[in-house]
């Protein structure tokens, strides 16, 4: 029982991370039809901006360091949207999008290597405590992952449901041409959406830094598993991201009760393939009608 609860704790924490990852690429996919294959590197960049620059270099306090990192990443996202996504969006085949974003990812990693150095480091004392309640260990970072994720989802719901900007983002996701006919500046809206995605990436990068350290490979596994989460829940949708993220997080940890630990990382990808073959629309799947 204890081990079950222990595994559930880490399952939920990682589930929240996969959810954030799935949301972060889904918003771009919804707005522009592009799948961002460099999203893992955006997360890594977020981790480096926070850990490498704000904390190590400027010795900032955690809170302002985080906020400033989000701002920096937002600007980064807007620049990438304007300079790279916009031309990619107009190329005829999604092949170009795949390779274009992959190359962008490589460039980001090389920049990280040059700016912050090749060796991994940990941010001393950042979310490194653990709390023990009734025999179950709660690492501080897991608790914050869950808290921040819930706050994020609430803020995002307010953004999408209550604000004019958020509603305009939903319009662009639903039908770009009709959105333009409402007087929405679609190109600018996409830039804002990509910037928003970059901000989510920064949040993820900061949250996983205590787990994976700050390292150029820190997001490799979560970025690919985030794709699995999206497919399991319902690709490209917010609801699907939440459900899929938690499902992947929990089953890959629960698997440890029945199978050898070395195959834990395979679980997400097996789930990915099973769903793609059996139910490609995912758990919350509806047949999405998308119009260009």
């Amino acid at each position: 029982m204890e081990s079950f609860l222990q595994l559930l704790v880490s399952g939920i924490a990682f589930g929240c991370i996969y959810t954030l990852v799935a949301i972060e690429y889904s918003v771009i996919y919804q707005a522009s039809g592009l799948v961002n294959f460099s999203h893992g590197q955006w997360i890594t960049l977020g981790g480096f901006v926070f850990g490498g620059t704000m904390i190590r270099q400027f010795n900032m306090h955690y809170i302002p360091a985080m906020l400033l990192s989000l701002v920096v990443m937002g600007i980064f996202g807007a620049l990438v949207a304007k300079g790279i996504f916009n031309p990619l969006r107009h190329l005829p085949n999604n092949l170009f999008v795949v390779l274009g974003t992959v190359m962008l990812g490589k460039i980001i990693i090389e920049l990280c290597r040059i700016i912050w150095g090749a060796s991994a480091f940990r941010i001393e004392g950042f979310l490194s405590d653990t709390v023990k309640i009734g025999g179950i260990v709660f690492p501080e970072v897991y608790i914050w992952i869950v808290i921040i994720s819930v706050i994020f989802l609430v803020v995002q719901a307010i953004l999408f449901q209550k604000t004019k900007l958020g509603k305009a983002m939903r319009c662009v996701a639903s039908d770009q041409k009709a959105a333009a006919l409402m007087g929405i500046n679609v190109n600018r809206n996409i830039i804002i959406t990509v910037a928003y995605s970059a901000i989510i990436c920064a949040i993820i990068g900061i949250l996983v830094a205590p787990i994976f350290n700050v390292d150029i490979n820190m997001a490799n596994s979560i970025s690919l598993k985030g794709f699995a989460a999206g497919v399991v829940g319902g690709f490209g949708t917010i609801g699907g991201s939440i459900v899929g993220g938690l499902v992947i997080g929990i089953i890959e940890n629960m698997y440890l009760m029945i199978g050898p630990a070395i195959y834990k990382d395979v679980v997400a990808f097996v789930a990915l393939i099973i769903f793609l073959l059996m139910k490609p629309t995912g758990l919350l799947g509806k047949n999405q009608q998308k119009r260009s």
């Binding site: 509603k167 939903r170 319009c171 996701a173 639903s174 039908d175 041409k177 009709a178 959105a179 006919l181 009608q289 119009r291």
Partner: peptide, 9 residues
């Protein structure tokens, strides 16, 4: 033409 209602709104 085709109304182009936002289905998700």
């Amino acid at each position: 033409e085709g109304r182009r209602i936002f289905y998700d709104l």
